[in-house]
């Protein structure tokens, strides 16, 4: 053991202490971050209402479809959700609507969509999966047309 030297032991002690402190630290200010997190997702008490920030496309006969994440500029569902949420909170719902409309205009999947709404819908989450998919509250933050 003595022949193996002391340097690795100092290195190991520093890494162990640093690693432990770094991973546990976010629990003190209770802050989320990366790559150190307090893992707040799904940890707070959750009621039965679901507030959803999203962009909905409508056809000329009034049928509504939620736009896919790609229409919001990402292929990741959670990034899309945050993009819409931050745009609404930051007063950028109008520009988000126009950017999404440009993508929809060149999309085959949403070829029938003629107008968009950036909106917040509130659903009763358990009722939703029991068949009642109507929003109990809706707030439209921006509207725009799709020009092809």
């Amino acid at each position: 053991m003595a022949r193996e030297g002391w340097r690795w032991r100092v290195n190991a002690a520093l890494v162990w202490v640093g690693l432990t402190g770094a991973i546990l630290y976010p629990t003190i200010p209770d802050e989320d971050g990366f790559p150190l997190s307090n893992y707040p997702m799904f940890s707070t008490p959750k009621g039965t209402t679901a507030k959803i920030y999203h962009v909905v496309g409508f056809t000329s006969d009034g049928r509504g479809y939620p736009l896919s994440p790609e229409m919001v500029g990402t292929d990741e569902i959670m990034q899309a959700y945050q993009t819409v949420k931050l745009a609404i909170r930051g007063g950028r719902a109008g520009s988000l609507c126009k950017d999404a409309a440009d993508r929809v205009a060149s999309s085959r999947e949403f070829a029938e969509v003629t107008r968009l709404q950036v909106r917040i819908d509130v659903f009763e989450s358990v009722h939703y999966w029991e068949g009642d998919r109507s929003a109990s509250k809706t707030r439209v933050l921006a509207k725009c047309g799709v020009s092809r």
Partner: peptide, 20 residues
């Protein structure tokens, strides 16, 4: 409580309403 149930319901609504 119903926290886990509500989270599962909510998270899946979020996905459904974002077209995923």
């Amino acid at each position: 409580s119903d926290t886990l149930r509500n989270f599962i319901a909510y998270d899946n609504i979020r996905k459904a309403e974002l077209g995923a």
